[in-house]
Design a binder for these strands. Sequence first.
DNA 1: ACCTGAACACCGTTCAAGT
DNA 2: ACCTGAACACCGTTCAAGT
Lengths: 225, 225
Amino acid sequence: MARPRKPLLSRERIVAAASALVDAEGLDAVSTRRLAAELGVSGPSLYNHFRNKDEILDAVADTVSAKVDLSMFDESDPRDWRTALHDWALSYRAALTEHPNVVPVLARGPGRRPAGLKVADAVFGAMVRAGWPAAQATQIGALMRYFVTGSALGSFAGGFVDDATAYDPSDYPHLGQAHLLAEHQEKVDEGAFETGLRALLDGLAARYEAGARTKRTGAAPSDRA
Amino acid sequence: MARPRKPLLSRERIVAAASALVDAEGLDAVSTRRLAAELGVSGPSLYNHFRNKDEILDAVADTVSAKVDLSMFDESDPRDWRTALHDWALSYRAALTEHPNVVPVLARGPGRRPAGLKVADAVFGAMVRAGWPAAQATQIGALMRYFVTGSALGSFAGGFVDDATAYDPSDYPHLGQAHLLAEHQEKVDEGAFETGLRALLDGLAARYEAGARTKRTGAAPSDRA
DNA sequence: ACCTGAACACCGTTCAAGT
DNA sequence: ACCTGAACACCGTTCAAGT
């Protein structure tokens, strides 16, 4: 048919189809030929809208970043960084666990993805506004990303096989119950995430208090190892 | 030539070649044909030693798990779980950052990989011995994996492009310095990891103390949200 | 500008054939 | 048992040709 009077494709349509395919069958299921077939066109057509396949996946990843709620960073008391960080982490994780297959793409960092940069901007800005020094605000953005993407990348509980004979007691004396993990996958992973998040925030709060104290007294920051 | 009198291949040789290829050029560079060529054989030969490509990558991943030091869990005072966990986390992260390209494979969980299971067994056993209830020992294993694999999966600092014009101040008011992150990649990522690890351990220690207290007094565990 | 088919240089895996 | 080449059903991407 060659060129139609009305374009058959658009970046939006391509991204929507790619997202659906990634969610349903995983990253490996996305081939340019398969995706094009799903859209009723031939493979090379996609290259009129994206430079390559990676750019399509980047766009898919950015739609996930765009789902992360950031309202807690401008609505609340700027000094209550702990609550904001907590609520943001829950929203962040929820967005990723809804689309676990795109996490490896997201883990490449924001790059030039607008929604990814918006997230980084909001977190960093809020931490600085709350009184964290810039270097530590950066660290908080980083360590939160480590924890959230790590938790969404792969289930902990689901990483153990559901087969009691896989855990020979003479090799793994403490894994006698490990075959039960798969059954309680969601509960275990969510519980671990909540426990870790709370510990992380408790630990950061203690450091924040110590920082505020040294500011008042003018003492050097205590760096107990 | 058909079958030689002495086998040309072995699982060990295949895994070694695959590891080198993954480290040097990434997961995508490992194709069965390329790997076979590197070993001086034809592609299908590999299938005499592994069921499929995924099994080869699993074996590669397990050699990385095998590099994680676990000695801190049996040598030290069982009650000093904090120090053991800290030292283990450093060794765990070091093993992964030496082979960042295999992290996505590792993130699938231990499955039936012996070294991966050994790690899970050692951490869980040590936490239980230290007095943590089994459910919380599981959570600690999980949340530590989240944090360490998340930190090794992709650099935070390196995820930002090294191009000041990518950060339009009207879009990202707080990212004016973000283009400098790439330059200090290692320092930023290591600092964030250490800060996060310390916060995590501080937070867990507080929870451990609270648990020990309720045990002594017989009170219900306080679960302040 | 936006689509097509043909082409290039690849993939993972199966299988019959060889020793 | 362990290797081979041929074959099948795929890949990502380029490019000239069509409107």
